[in-house]
């Protein structure tokens, strides 16, 4: 196997391990840390099923962001929903036989790349153009956006401009999954695309991308409004009563 292939094989195994273990550690940390007081932002649902619905609206529709800023909401939602479709479409490279539904969403997944990149462009523009957002932006905020734009653009180029050898790509990915590595196709656009994806996987658990698991653990959103009906007591707080 060529040095190039070896580098990509190692890179993807390392990135996958860092992503999985990094996220698992952060999720375990959030789950372990107690929430000693009832602090849902009210009005809040009074039942657990109500909480699930609130969380679903938050995660799928970005309800709070919609209340807050229509521009950020539309760009943010375009990016995230576009990315979601793109990711689902990419499943075709991870399964030997493509099921019917996956084949059916292929055109949506392809064009979603434009929605994703357009949303990212809008978010980037806000960072430059709105004085308040510019003030709070760090270099890593710009780099995150540029990285995602790079991933989206390089991906779209391979779909719409210069086709890459997707059969060879699929063999490479299935090879990784079966622990029988195959050569990586030496297409520069593909190599750039893959390198940026690996980069994103690596920074995920050590960056603001933690907002993805974090939102599910946010006490202001995931607590039911029932403090008068149920006594809520954290372990360390119970010790004070001893």
């Amino acid at each position: 196997m060529s040095t190039l292939s070896l580098i990509y094989v190692v890179l993807f195994y390392a990135a996958t391990l860092l992503l999985i273990f990094g996220l698992a550690m952060k999720i375990a940390q959030y789950a372990r840390t107690p929430a000693p007081l009832k602090i849902p932002t009210t009005p809040a649902p009074m039942t657990q099923s109500g909480v699930a619905l609130r969380m679903a609206r938050e995660v799928v529709l970005f309800e709070s962001l919609f209340k807050s800023s229509k521009w950020t909401w539309i760009f943010g939602w375009m990016f995230h929903f576009g990315l979601f479709l793109v990711l689902v479409r990419h499943l075709r490279y991870f399964v030997a036989d493509i099921p019917g539904w996956l084949a059916a969403i292929q055109p949506f997944g392809k064009y979603a790349a434009f929605m994703m990149v357009a949303g990212l462009g809008g978010l980037l523009a806000r960072r430059f153009l709105v004085d308040r957002v510019r003030y709070i932006s760090t270099p890593s905020d710009y780099l995150h956006l540029l990285l995602l734009i790079g991933i989206g653009m390089s991906g779209a180029m391979m779909t719409f401009v210069a086709h890459t050898d997707i059969v060879a790509l699929k063999m490479f990915i299935l090879g990784l999954m079966r622990f029988a590595p195959q050569p990586v196709p030496a297409d520069p656009i593909l190599l750039a695309h893959l390198a940026m994806v690996a980069m994103l996987m690596i920074v995920f658990p050590i960056s603001k991308l933690l907002h993805a698991p974090g939102v599910f653990f946010s006490p202001t959103r995931n607590q039911a409004d029932n403090p008068r009906e149920r006594r809520h007591l954290a372990e360390w707080a119970a010790q004070l009563e001893k």
Binding site: K26, Y30, T33, S64, L65, S68, S69, T72, G76, L123, R126, V130, R132, V133, I136, S137, T138, D141, K208, L210, H211, G214, V215, F217, S218, P219
Partner: peptide
Amino acid sequence: VFMDACVHCGACT
């Protein structure tokens, strides 16, 4: 969670 989750989107600004 709040220390980690902020993405500097500016919604609160």
